[in-house]
């Protein structure tokens, strides 16, 4: 199913470029994620992964190029409109509402599509609250529900962000180094959850990860960026054996085979 080019990509970037002054953080990157996939996005530090996420999710404007989601062009849409269409993400630099409680953070991340401001003056739906509590339970945060989010530890805040991304029941979830600083047992649980969401609920995932095991275990396809350009694309096995990738990560002499 994965490389079935006859299907419409769920998310697609065409010749996406992004310049910061003279620096080309992204240079004409073509990129697509198909429905039902789990795609990994890797690359050395500063290779443009987060910038690509920002452009795809509309947090940053593109310097040139186009972005499509569900076949519709979203290049000039606002982030909240993209969110209503079913795209959710986490951030490498944590973005939570520190002065609100953990539960409030979750409730505010519900699905807002098609609702008027008037709705916001009434109490939240019971289902929304139940869903929030169920997710918090899964992320082992239920005991901290009424704590201010800013008082959580770094790892807990990351977990909360994952919960906030899952809250609106999106079709595509972008996770930017979501497992950094999280204890290994919980990473396994998250992995299982991602797999289950992918198989049973047909959710699509795009993951930025430095943890190659995480990528290898979950992803059917990996996309490698280097200096803002596509370096390679393929299955995890193909990627770890790709000469160009090894060179980009470890320099010209190859180095040890850490990418395993």
């Amino acid at each position: 199913m994965r490389n079935d080019n006859h299907r419409i990509p769920l998310l697609e970037g065409r010749r996406v470029s992004k310049y910061f002054g003279g620096l080309a953080a992204l240079n004409e990157v073509d990129f697509a994620v198909y429905p039902g996939e789990i795609v990994g996005l890797i690359g050395p530090n500063g290779s443009g992964k987060t910038t690509l996420f920002d452009c795809l999710s509309r947090v940053q404007d593109l310097s040139s190029g186009q972005v499509f989601f569900k076949g519709e062009e979203i290049t000039h849409k606002k982030p909240y409109q993209v969110a209503h269409m079913g795209l959710a993400r986490t951030f490498q630099v944590i973005r939570i509402y520190r002065k609100l409680t953990v539960l409030e953070n979750m409730l505010l991340s519900r699905q807002w599509r098609g609702e008027t401001l008037w709705r916001q003056l009434r109490p939240s739906h019971r289902q929304t609250e139940e869903r929030a509590k169920e997710l918090l339970h899964f992320l082992l945060l239920d005991r901290l529900m009424h704590e201010k989010a800013g008082n959580l530890s770094g790892g807990q805040q990351r977990l909360l962000e994952i919960g906030m991304a899952l809250m609106p029941d999106p079709d595509l979830i972008l996770l930017d180094e979501a497992t950094s600083g999280i204890n290994p047992t919980l990473i396994e649980t998250i992995k299982d959850r991602i797999r289950a969401l992918n198989r049973e609920a047909k959710k699509t995932f795009l993951l930025i990860e430095h943890n190659i095991h995480f990528i290898g275990d979950l992803c059917s396809r990996v996309f490698v960026l280097n200096y803002g350009q596509k370096l390679a694309e393929g299955t995890p096995e193909e990627i770890v054996n790709n000469e160009a990738v090894i060179e980009a990560y470890f320099g010209a002499d190859g180095g040890e085979n850490d990418v395993e």
Partner: peptide
């Protein structure tokens, strides 16, 4: 308050 605490995050979450 969410807008004050993190406007980009709020916007990205719909």
């Amino acid at each position: 308050i969410a807008i004050r605490e993190d406007e980009i995050g709020a916007e990205m979450r719909g």
